[in-house]
């Protein structure tokens, strides 16, 4: 089972690293969205510090949704998705592998760059640390939930926008607890409770999302 998972992860990582432009544009989308807010709101550090958690989190959410559109699309187009469906491996496991690989190449760079963006918003180092932890817990959950929508909208016209429309309401808890944890720690309340909730959401989505996404894939490939 581990071997299968590893095969899928390795396959998708190889493909992603051979076609890096996608990854870089996704990362820059995140950076640009976060950098646009001060231009729209004004440079007062007081205000920026207040909105920073929300801005970074909403931008991470948008960037994840944008990237997720492609998670199954290329496999669907060249027929390798139907081959994956026909392997004697449990489909949810293959889906987990694909999501994991996708998160490693789209989610992890966001997490790594986020402290630098936090500095733009004058966040203290403690808060930056919490921001990284919440994104580390939250972005995989976003990928998992978003994969369901990506599987449902596979091959449909306007799939990307439609996917965002379907998935974003479902990701609201992640957003609330993610931004909430950063905010709570910024105001000195401590965000541990939020972090536990995020971990719980991550576990729940890790259990259910691959099953739902696998079922959705079978429907979409038919």
């Amino acid at each position: 089972m581990i071997k299968t998972l590893w095969t899928v992860v390795q396959r998708d990582l190889t493909l992603a690293l051979r076609n890096r432009s996608d990854l870089i544009s996704n990362l820059f989308f995140f950076i640009i969205v976060v950098s646009l807010f001060p231009l729209g709101i004004g440079p007062e550090l007081e205000t920026l510090r207040l909105i920073a958690p929300g801005v970074v989190w909403v931008a991470a959410l948008l960037a994840s949704m944008l990237a997720l559109e492609r998670i199954f699309a290329s496999d669907f187009d060249d027929g390798s998705l139907e081959q994956l469906l026909l392997t004697p491996q449990p489909l949810p496991l293959l889906v987990v592998g694909k999501i994991l690989a996708h998160w490693l190449v789209t989610g992890v760079p966001l997490v790594m760059i986020s402290p630098i963006l936090g500095i733009q918003y004058d966040l203290s180092s403690d808060v930056l640390w919490i921001l990284v932890v919440t994104l580390l817990l939250g972005t995989p959950a976003l990928s998992l939930i978003g994969a369901i929508g990506a599987a449902l909208t596979l091959g449909l016209r306007g799939g990307g926008v439609l996917n965002a429309l379907l998935v974003m309401p479902l990701t609201i808890p992640v957003l609330i607890f993610g931004a909430g944890a950063v905010e709570a720690s910024a105001s000195g309340l401590g965000g541990e409770g939020h972090l536990y909730m995020m971990a719980a959401i991550l576990v729940v989505s890790l259990v259910f999302a691959p099953l739902a996404a696998a079922a959705a894939l079978r429907i979409s490939v038919e």
């Binding site: 496999d75 060249d78 390798s80 139907e82 081959q83 293959l94």
Partner: peptide
């Protein structure tokens, strides 16, 4: 099953395609 679309990833080499398919099979 070998269908109209071969299920071959353009980004992978022939040998990689074959080995991954066999591994997953």
């Amino acid at each position: 099953y070998i269908g109209h679309k071969g299920g071959i990833k353009g980004g992978l080499t022939a040998i990689e395609n074959l080995q991954i398919a066999a591994q997953l099979d």
